[in-house]
Write a protein that binds this DNA or RNA. Structure first.
Lengths: 354, 354
DNA sequence: TTGTATGCGTTATCAT
DNA sequence: ATGATAACGCATACAA
C-alpha cells in the first residue's frame, strides 16, 4: 500500500499479514538490528531496550519466522528421519526416545516412513535434502542395497546416521546398530542347548543388514554345535503374519517336522505360537520357539515367547548423542567416528516357549 | 567475492557452499528468473531452455532450497502434528496412515510428542507456530483444558484440526473424533447383556474428552438398564499397567468383588486378564472384561479380549481430507465445517472375555 | 550500545 | 519467451 496523488493504492500483492521485527522497530523508533539483537538476547544491548522490545513484541503478537531465520543462518534446526514403519515396536520406541532428546536440544524432527519401499525412500531422501535438514537419520528398507540417494548428504557434509538397518560397510557415515550377529548366535545356542536338533529358521530378506547378521550368527552357532540346518527349513521373506503363516504351513505339512524354530522377528514368533495352538503342537515339548526384538506382545501371549531384547531406548540415546556431537562440531569429529560402527548389546530373554 | 582493482576479494563471510539458481543462470548466460521458471515447469518457457536448465542443474548438483522458497511463498508445505505418544497403538496407526496421505499430497509432517504434558504441549505449539507450519493437527494430552496456546493458529487462519482427544465445544477449529459416547454405551450394554450386575469401571481422567464421553455413554447404558455403578468401583487415573494393577488389587481385595469390568483402554484390560490369571479368577465365568481401542494385543492374549474398534485408518483419512481441503481453499470452506465435529463410528468386537 | 547496509535463494511483477 | 528487479524476514559486518 502506498500513497499516490492523494490515494492509497493497493498493490496486488498479498496483504502483509504479520508483524516482523521491522514493524517492531518502527513502532519503537529504533532500528531492526537492535530489535533482532534484543530478541536474541544479544549481550551488547541495554537491559532497558531489551525489555522494551520484548514487551512490544508480545503486544504486537510478533512471532519469530524460522523460515527467514533459517535462510539467513543456513541451518534449519530440523533433523530428518526415515524409518520403514513407525508402527513397528522397535521403531516406535526408538523414535519416542530420540525425539524427546532432540526436542530438548532444540531440534525438530521430521519423521518420514519409507514403508519398506526403496522408491519412496529415495523420494524422501531428496525431499529432506531440499528441506535442508541439518542432519539425517535413517533405518533402511528391507531391500535397500544401493544407497547412492544419500550421497548428497555426505558431499555437503550433512551428518548422516544409519541405525538398526544399516548399509554395507564403507559408507562414510555414522552407523549405530544392534549386535544382530550375537543375537543370532544367542538364539542358535539357546535352541541347541535346549535340546533341539531339527531346527527351522524363518527370516527376513538377506538384503537387509539385520537379517543378514542374524542369519550369520545363527548359522555359526548351529555349525559350531554340529547341528545341521536343512535348506528346505529356511525361509527368507517379509516377516508379516500372513507370510509367516504360509511358511509354517509348509514346515509342518509333512510328517517330518522341526522341533525348534528361530523366528527372526516377533510377529513371526507369535504366528508360530498361534499356529501351534491351532495344530495342537505342544510348546515347548514338541516345538521350541524363539523370536527377536522383545516386542511387548511376546510377554502377553500364552505361552510367553523367548526373544532377543534390543534396547531401543539405549540405541536412541546413542544416536542422539552422535547427532548432537556432530552438529556442534561441524566437520571435525565427534565421539562416534564416521565409518566405525557402534554396536549395541542385545540380550536373550527367556520365557515359556523354550 | 567481488572484483576490486584487479583482485578477487574474499569477504569474511561463510564461503558460498552450494549452487543456487543464480549460479545456474550465470553458467547458462540467462536470467535467474528463467531458471526458476524452467525448474518449476512454468508453461511460458521454451522446451529447449527448460531442458538446458534442468541438465545444467543436475550437472551442478543443484538442489532446491525450500527455506528460501518457503520464505518467498509464505508457506512451508509442512504440517505439524502434536500427539501424546507415538507408541500408543491407535496413534501409531493413525500417524502411519495420515503421513502416507500427506506425503502423497506433497506435504511434510512434523511429528511431535507432548508425552501427556500440558507444558510440553504448549512449547510444541509455539515452536510449530514459529516454524510456520501450514496447518496443525492435535490430539490433546490427558489434562489439557485450557487450549489458549492454539489461539495463534486460529487468529492467523492456519487450519487447526483436533482428532481423538478433542477440546470442549466452542473452539473454532476442525474436530474429528471417535464416537466415544457410543463406545461407552456399547460396552455397558454388552456387559449387562452378558449378565453382569456388579460392574467396575477403570477409566482415564475426565479432563480428557475421550474418557469423559466413554464414561457418559457407559453410565447411561447402566442407568437405562437399572444396574447400579458403585462409586468405590470406579477409578479415574492414567491408564498404565502399574496404575491398572493397583486399582485391580483394590477392587478385588475384599470378598465383595465385581463380576464385570469396563477398562477404558486395552492396556488396562490386559492388566485385568493377567491379574485374573494370577488370582485364579475365571474369565468370563467370574469376571467379564471389555477393553477399548482393539489394540492387536487384545486378540493375542488368552483369553482374547472383547474391545471397541476405533478404525484409526478411517479417522486418518478424514483428517487428511479435511486438511487438504482446508489448505486448498484458504479461508473459505471445506467439506468439514469448522466447529461441527465429525464423529467416526466405533464397533464392538466380541472375544473370549465376555 | 545502536544504526546502516547487505545478502541468504527464490519467485512474482512488470517490462521487453 | 525472457530479463530486470524487488521483496519475503532476519541477522550479521561494519560504522558510528
Amino acid at each position: 500500500m502506498f500513497w499516490i496523488y492523494g490515494f492509497y493504492v493497493m498493490t496486488p500483492r498479498k496483504p502483509k499479514s504479520e508483524n516482523s521485527i521491522v514493524d517492531i522497530a518502527r513502532a519503537l523508533g529504533i532500528s531492526p538490528a537492535t530489535v533482532s539483537r534484543a530478541l536474541n538476547n544479544n549481550l551488547r544491548i541495554s537491559e532497558a531496550t531489551r525489555v522494551r522490545v520484548k514487551e512490544m513484541a508480545k503486544e504486537m503478537g510478533y512471532r519469530h519466522n524460522s523460515m527467514a531465520s533459517s535462510l539467513r543462518n543456513r541451518r534449519s534446526n530440523t533433523i530428518g528421519l526415515i524409518v520403514p514403519r513407525i508402527s513397528m515396536y522397535f521403531h516406535a520406541f526408538f523414535i519416542t526416545s530420540l525425539q524427546r532428546q532432540l526436542q530438548a536440544a532444540g531440534y525438530n524432527l521430521m519423521i518420514c516412513q519409507s514403508n519398506d519401499s526403496v522408491k519412496l525412500e529415495k523420494e524422501l531422501a531428496n525431499s529432506l535434502y531440499s528441506a535442508r535438514v541439518d542432519a539425517l537419520v535413517v533405518s533402511l528398507t528391507l531391500y535397500t542395497e544401493d544407497i547412492s540417494h544419500f550421497e548428497g548428504f555426505v558431499k555437503q557434509g550433512i551428518p548422516l546416521v544409519f541405525y538398526d538397518r544399516v548399509p554395507a560397510e564403507g559408507t562414510p557415515s555414522y552407523v549405530i546398530k544392534g549386535d544382530d550377529y550375537r543375537g543370532g548366535l544367542l538364539a542358535g545356542n539357546h535352541l541347541v542347548g535346549a535340546g533341539c536338533q531339527r531346527i527351522a529358521y524363518v527370516s527376513g530378506p538377506l538384503s537387509c543388514s539385520i537379517y543378514h547378521e542374524r542369519t550369520r550368527g545363527f548359522m555359526d552357532a548351529l555349525a559350531k554345535q554340529d547341528v545341521a540346518l536343512r535348506k528346505e527349513w529356511v525361509y527368507h521373506h517379509e516377516l508379516t503374519m500372513e507370510n509367516a503363516w504360509n511358511s509354517l504351513r509348509k514346515l509342518f505339512d509333512g510328517h517330518d517336522v522341526p522341533d525348534g524354530l528361530f523366528a527372526a522377528n516377533d510377529t513371526t514368533a507369535i504366528a508360530a505360537v498361534e499356529f501351534a495352538r491351532e495344530r495342537a503342537i505342544r510348546i515347548p515339548e514338541d516345538l521350541r520357539i524363539i523370536g527377536y526384538s522383545n516386542d511387548p506382545r511376546t510377554s502377553i501371549i500364552t505361552p510367553s515367547i523367548t526373544s532377543i531384547e534390543q534396547y531401543p531406548h539405549e540405541m536412541a540415546d546413542k544416536v542422539a548423542e552422535t547427532l548432537i556431537d556432530a552438529l556442534q562440531q561441524p566437520v571435525s569429529g565427534s565421539s562416534v567416528s564416521i565409518g566405525d560402527p557402534v554396536v549395541c548389546p542385545v540380550d536373550l530373554v527367556r520365557r515359556m516357549t523354550t
